[in-house]
Design a protein around this nucleic acid. Structure first.
Lengths: 144, 144
DNA sequence: CCAAAACTGAAATTCATTCTCAATAATAAT
DNA sequence: ATTATTATTGAGAATGAATTTCAGTTTTGG
């Protein structure tokens, strides 16, 4: 999908859900759609000001929250800033986590059928894959 | 302080790497090992004070950083608090992200061979799986 | 064009995390 | 044991991201 098509689709999504198409929102969308990677709210704020100079940082946060709610934007967890910790209970190999969204219980499970996928991904994209994070969210038996 | 196998193993790991076995660290480890789920630094601070009342919050942060560096503790990304955002470019289905750790470039890839794994996971654990997050980290062709 | 409602920016605020530094405690050597 | 060395600590200050508040503005439907 070309960029204008993408932008138009995004606009339509907003309108369809009854949200207004404002200059700040257009600036945020335009900036995001022009960038192949991810941006922090602060970076987005800086760059989007080139499209609409009166833009405020608060509005960037609000717009991101809205777009995320609508599923138009996705959060990327980069290294820092996330909050909870569990003990690693098995000392070898890769572990993944199954997290209950209600009680927060965490169950680890051993490496999954991902090796094959990662191999193919490497071949297709040329990325040198170093690690991966997998979190599975659900409800544990007690919380259902 | 009683010491089951897990705790003793953790102590040994610390000692083996030349770190001191202090009361604050013991309190943090003891608390974490008693909890089947994940705790925020603040929660951990509250609970670990029951083991060592003079404990400071700063030390909890430092201890977590140390334990994470040693691979004894793992960060869990729960909903809030993470920083970067990308646009979702395909509007249907599940997407995963391949992130270059150097330039930050993000490439999406379609659903992987996880369905089977998730099905098995459900059968084995009884969790009702609702969603999952997968991030693959590597270096893109340009950055290698 | 007008009115109603959604939306906005700025400032103040909150909250998590990090930094600084003098005091303290764990360990190894005596 | 006692001591010396050095890692480690806690308190308070500082930082920085994210949120709240609110009066003013912009968008849209009529």
């Amino acid at each position: 999908m070309d960029m204008d098509g993408l932008l138009k689709a995004l606009h339509d999504q907003l309108r369809a859900q009854g949200y207004r198409l404002t200059k700040p929102r257009c600036a945020v969308l335009e900036t995001l759609s022009a960038v192949p990677s991810h941006l922090t709210p602060e970076q987005l704020y800086q760059q989007a000001q080139q499209h609409y100079s009166k833009l405020g940082l608060v509005t960037v946060y609000r717009t991101l929250a809205l777009l995320e709610r609508l599923g138009l934007v996705q959060r990327v967890h980069v290294k820092a800033g996330c909050h909870s910790f569990t003990l690693v209970r098995s000392f070898e190999g890769h572990h993944h986590q199954l997290i209950c969204r209600d009680c927060g219980r965490v169950e680890e499970f051993p490496d999954c059928a991902l090796d094959n996928t990662l191999e193919q991904l490497h071949k297709r994209t040329g990325f040198a894959i170093e690690t991966h994070h997998l979190e599975v969210i659900g409800r544990c038996p007690k919380c259902q």
